[in-house]
Design a binder for these strands. Structure first.
Lengths: 202, 202
DNA sequence: ATAGTAGTTGACTGTTTAGTCTAATTTGAT
DNA sequence: ATCAAATTAGACTAAACAGTCAACTACTAT
């Protein structure tokens, strides 16, 4: 009973966009409210603070991202193809972002995590959980690829951490340089890291 | 003539520490002044804004870091040893930082660059110049290692970008997770990326 | 020794910000 | 239709913040 509202969702969308396209520190509660078309009274009706909102927003956003990733990383897809699709998808995604914002924005989790990890404990923990889950997709694809004999990767966890560090590093470079083309090297880098046996087609 | 002062240096030291251990957005001019033991009037005597101070501070800090790197990457040192020394040095450095601050802080340039690149144009450009120079150390070591037949890396630029993305990615993970041990994998990751021919001692 | 210059001080202004509170409004359930 | 819960409006406070200024101080070169 009572009236219904999507103000909460609008606030979460707004905070994600503002943090990602700018930074956590530079987005004020007033900014968020204005972008969401919500008055401050309503903000504090739903959330106690910016950090609580950010945590909930990142959680929700990840929940919906997982659906896409579940599809990309479906065990029915050949393991190395999963990773290639993932990188292709990432490239296209960043291209769209740049077309829309005029900016390559990279990985939201890394951007926020790197900024707030020394200051916002709850947020940092949430980010870490998300990134751990993200790595699991990669790890499982690597393990399957190894089992299929497509690569030699007896320690899938190690390779997954390596590939992830590399890819997040690339995304960060792309953000800082505002250049999607940086991501073009992802596939070849993956081949190098995983030692893809079929990599050379010549 | 006139009176002399090291307030400018103190301000630059303070801003580096505050940004690195926290973030750009969360360090206020008042914070910087307090940490440096300098009054706001003096701040504005030396600098126009926080971003100008940050730019000068990062410039100066890089200038002194270059001296260390020139030694580590001296052409008189065998090329792969340069890289191993660099990673060892990075690990020890982050360990000291953690001992001192209770926190792994990762790479200052990436942290700042990632946070401000969409908002502070001059700063972003400065960061990019520094990171380009940093990459040159790695690239030249890789080129020399290739020439010496120690690795196969006909495109040293590509490998350097790859190794750098990986290493910066690791440092970012170390910062977010507040765990130096993440960096332990750097040497093995490097071997994988460069295809070190002497890697396996067994 | 002193004149001129480089640097310092702290009080001041106006603005932005987070956060609060109360009264009003909308809506679903009965 | 009406009640009660859910949501909104917006004005308000106090603190934090960036930036200014004119008077003051210490130094150094002559």
């Amino acid at each position: 009973m009572g009236r219904v509202s999507d103000a909460k969702e609008r606030l979460m969308d707004a905070v994600l966009e503002l943090i990602w396209s700018g930074s956590y520190g530079s987005t004020t509660i007033d900014d968020i409210c204005e972008k969401a078309g919500v008055k401050k009274g309503s903000f504090y009706y739903f959330f106690d603070s910016k950090s609580e909102l950010a945590a909930e927003a990142f959680e929700a956003s990840w929940k919906s991202k997982r659906i896409e990733l579940d599809s990309i990383f479906s065990p029915t897809v050949p393991p190395l193809e999963r990773l290639h699709k993932y990188f292709d998808f990432g490239y296209e995604f960043q291209r769209e972002i740049k077309a829309k914002h005029g900016r390559v924005l990279g990985c939201p989790q890394v951007t926020l995590g790197c900024e707030v990890c020394t200051q916002e404990d709850a947020l940092q923990k949430k980010i870490q959980v998300i990134m751990d889950q993200k790595r699991k997709y990669i790890e499982s694809a690597i393990r399957d690829a190894h089992a299929a004999g497509e690569i030699h990767a007896p320690d899938a966890g190690l390779k997954a951490r390596m590939l992830m560090a590399y890819y997040e590093g690339l995304l960060t470079q792309a953000r800082i340089q505002n250049d999607v083309e940086v991501l073009r090297e992802a596939a070849s880098g993956m081949s190098t890291i995983l030692g893809e046996k079929v990599a050379v087609t010549a």
